Computed example of a mutant assay.
Amino acid sequence: MHLETLFTYMTLTVLGLLPIMNPPAAATVLLGLSKGRDKSYIVSQAKTTGVYLFIALCITFFIGASVLELFSISIPSLRLGGGIIIVAIGFNMLFPRPDNGAAPSGQDSIALVPLTIPSLCGPGSMAMIISLAAQIATYENHTSMTSVYGGVVAGLALVALIATFTLTMAYPLLKALGQNGINAFTRIMGFLLICMGVQFFTLGIQEIVLEINELL
């Protein structure tokens, strides 16, 4: 195994994924959906999200393209679907449903949806990973494919750890802002999430239009 190759692909994976994944944005989703919860719930959801995220990233890297091909799902369709989900989450944060002030029960988990999918492992992240996997698949004569794949998997693990740490920092922010601050912050982030979702949706529409124009 070539350590230099492993480190190179690990670094490229982390640097390529983190800006697209944007863990602080996912932390705000956790923050907005955790009103009335205690520290143990938030930390538990953060750790569970980290595990789910690593699994989802690995599945996307190794078989993501095959799964999309099996179900005839294109990248633009993936962007459209992810955009719709993100917009729905944003609306729920911008216009929260009234409650009776009681703390919600602890059986509801938000680790898989929406924290892992689509907040962290969303259309942009999936598209980037699938593109990376397709590029690596062309390296037939690479000197050490073990180091290449090992570096990518190590990068995915490091990204999941960074995301987990970022999510756990939501609780100190929750305590610092207080209830009124959280309510205002949640609505602001809800609006931004709606904008992000619309952006994903718009990109998907643009890519579909380009594909149609190429066929004509």
Results as ranks from 00 to 15, higher is better:
G178D: 06
A133M: 04
V29A: 13
Y41S: 05
T60N: 03
P104Y: 01
L15D: 00
I205G: 05
V29T: 15
S109P: 00
G106F: 04
A160F: 02
E214D: 08
V51D: 05
S77F: 01
E140A: 04
I130F: 12
D99Q: 04
G36V: 09
S131F: 11
L156R: 00
G190R: 12
F7W: 07
I89W: 01
A176M: 06
P118M: 13
S77K: 07
Y52N: 06
A26G: 06
I130T: 15
L120N: 13
Q206W: 04
I110T: 03
F165L: 15
G204I: 14
L192R: 11
L6T: 10
L53D: 03
L158K: 11
Q107S: 03
I84G: 02
A154K: 03
F62E: 09
I84E: 01
D99C: 00
E214P: 00
G178K: 05
L31Y: 06
S74T: 15
L161N: 00
K47N: 05
R37D: 09
P19H: 06
S44Q: 05
L6R: 07
Y52A: 03
R187K: 15
A26M: 10
K39H: 05
P172Y: 08
E69I: 01
S44H: 08
A137E: 14
L80G: 09
T143M: 06
G32D: 09
A157L: 15
Q179A: 14
P123I: 11
D38I: 06
F91R: 02
L31E: 07
M189C: 11
I205D: 07
L31R: 13
L192T: 07
K39I: 11
L177R: 12
A25C: 00
G16P: 07
M21F: 06
